[in-house]
Design a protein around this nucleic acid. Structure first.
Length: 303
DNA sequence: GCGTCCAGGTCTACC
DNA sequence: GGTAGACCTGGACGC
């Protein structure tokens, strides 16, 4: 195996741990976080079929150190592709300052600026984020981990005996509904995953384009809802990973947190929740998520 | 050990 | 546009 050391500069308002722990993605394969060493591990794919294991850790105040392990020498272009993918996962190029400027007007939310939170970890590809989001619907987190772990273990390109990359759309289309149900345990989500993978593999939709700047949030939301298995919860949260925060993406967990924080556990209509966050405009989805997960930062990350 | 309920929803049919 | 019922799985819970 070959090793390559890379340095990634980070913005002043970036916090590595807050970003890794922004939601549960860091526990889903092929992400892995070592809490002892405060190190994020991630398998990346270069040139469609060349796996690279990245060990990502804080180095000093404003740098990340990436230790890439790979089976053959890599070119300068491949090195820059590694840093590009890691930067994209950690949202390093996203201008979070605009969000901070907006919430600075509200003293109760200044804690977000103080701890440099607000960047949400995402996958190297939109395809992976969408598949994973479908796998979070209507089930426990442990089942999501099982389904994603099985997808990676059964269909991903192997890096070594114990670690695989996230499978491509093409790899998923080579399977069957029965395989996804029985071997992957994806249940009724199986035809949804298969249909989405087929659309991507056959280039009927170009989901990676969704990360392009300047796209209309509402048209992206409608496009997401047209994917079978993606409803308002999934679409709202996929949008957050695309850098659009206009939708709350409510689910039973976040509703429960809202009821607990604002209504002593009593259920209220979704419209009531929407109304509370309306003043925050295009940032309301991000602000909602930060507020519902504040206790993770105060106490302990639950995953 | 077994049955029931429900969890970080969505789809379809029906009104 | 609103609602009811079906849908996979697996862990928690009561008996």
């Amino acid at each position: 195996m070959h090793k390559t050391e890379l340095i990634l500069n980070t913005p002043e308002n970036f916090n590595f741990i807050r970003t890794v722990f922004s939601h549960g993605w860091c526990t889903l394969a092929p992400f892995r976080f070592d809490k002892e060493d405060k190190t994020l591990y991630r398998l990346l794919i270069l040139n469609s079929n060349f796996p690279v294991l990245c060990r990502i850790a804080q180095r000093g105040k404003s740098d990340l150190q990436i230790t890439a392990t790979h089976a053959a020498e890599i070119s300068p272009r491949q090195k820059s592709e590694i840093t590009r993918q890691v930067a994209s996962c950690l949202r390093l190029t996203e201008d979070i300052a605009e969000f901070y400027n907006e919430i600075r007007k509200f003293p109760k939310y200044r804690w977000i600026i103080r701890i440099k939170a607000g960047r949400l970890l995402r996958s190297p590809s939109v395809f992976e984020d969408v598949v994973k989001m479908i796998c979070t619907t209507n089930c426990s987190w442990s089942l999501t981990e099982t389904i994603v772990g099985n997808l990676v273990g059964e269909l991903g390109i192997p890096f070594d005996d114990s670690q695989n990359c996230f499978p491509s759309a093409e790899a998923l289309t080579s399977t069957t509904d029965r395989f996804l149900r029985k071997a992957i345990r994806a249940g009724y989500r199986s035809p949804y995953i298969l249909e989405f993978a087929e659309k991507v593999a056959n280039k009927k939709i170009d989901v990676e384009r969704w990360r392009s700047p300047g796209l209309s949030t509402d048209s992206l939301y409608r496009e997401l809802l047209s994917i079978k298995g993606v409803g308002s919860y999934a679409a709202g949260n996929i949008l957050k990973l695309l850098g659009h925060y206009n939708y709350l993406g409510l689910d039973s967990w976040s509703r429960g947190e809202y009821y607990r924080i604002y209504h002593k556990g009593r259920a209220v209509k979704d419209q009531t929740i929407e109304k509370r966050y309306r003043p925050y405009g295009k940032w309301k989805g991000l602000l909602f998520w930060m507020e519902m997960t504040k206790h993770w930062y105060d106490h302990k990350f639950p995953f």
